[in-house]
Design a binder for these strands. Sequence first.
DNA 1: TTGATTGCAAATATTTTGCAGGCAT
DNA 2: ATGCCTGCAAAATATTTGCAATCAA
Lengths: 149, 149
Amino acid sequence: MTNWINQDWLKILQEKGFRITKPLRIITDILASSNHILNPTQVYLEAREEYPKIGLVTVYRTMEKLEEAGLIERVHMPDGCQSFFQAAAGHQHLLICTKCSKAEYFEGDNLGTLFNRTGQSFGYEITNHWLQLFGLCQDCQLKHTNNPT
Amino acid sequence: MTNWINQDWLKILQEKGFRITKPLRIITDILASSNHILNPTQVYLEAREEYPKIGLVTVYRTMEKLEEAGLIERVHMPDGCQSFFQAAAGHQHLLICTKCSKAEYFEGDNLGTLFNRTGQSFGYEITNHWLQLFGLCQDCQLKHTNNPT
DNA sequence: TTGATTGCAAATATTTTGCAGGCAT
DNA sequence: ATGCCTGCAAAATATTTGCAATCAA
């Protein structure tokens, strides 16, 4: 089940001196292979199916390490700020399904120019930005349409 | 100290059937006149200077009402999702100082087009978006420069 | 063997709820 | 006078910390 992305992650983690334990392997695999934004509890529930004795605390700590290692990044969601998603290569923006949390990165061309111009006009020195689009992904649109009546 | 914006807010709240009490008046005044994004604790601390017996719980509940009434809106900050700012007229975007939370609304021209195009290309039906720029406001840039050595 | 990592339990921190009394209407 | 609103205390949540046992290296 461990996919190639996860292999990379494990290698990186090992190089950073982390020990590759079973909980780490499972948590990493979930996060590396999911195209959904997940919070610690969601990862915990999923991890427990494969390894019932895993603790929520371990999930918190492991996700913290993965963030530290730059493999996942925190994403603020309408209902919480403790969710994470695979880090983007370079800074990109997110398109997120409000129903299932499926997410995609996209590039906005030239936004940097607008951002800097805006910062200048208000006298701010821009250091960072968040751009997230929310909507329904294709699957969730269909589910919605096929509502049992 | 109660400013004109606050007068409007009180009127709106009254029309919605809320009772205009002293805690409400104080909390409203803080939020209506501040150009900083504030969380309940910050509002509480400020409110307490004018009215020491106010409770944090009241601040939470009052801010909830103000949000319900559309006068303030929730803003996600890097360190928490429980902050609020005066609601914008129409949907606008935010420019936020990472040091003091001073904030400004700005309009991004034509972003809607980009957003919809992006949504389409991934099969998402866009319903909403967040765009926030972070940086240092002018005051905080100066403070930074004048660092005592 | 050694010490980083785990999982439990307990501690913190944060937000919400219940309720008796107070106050706006 | 009525019942919404307040503030206290307590409950519910969410997250972090301490520690002995386990396990990767």
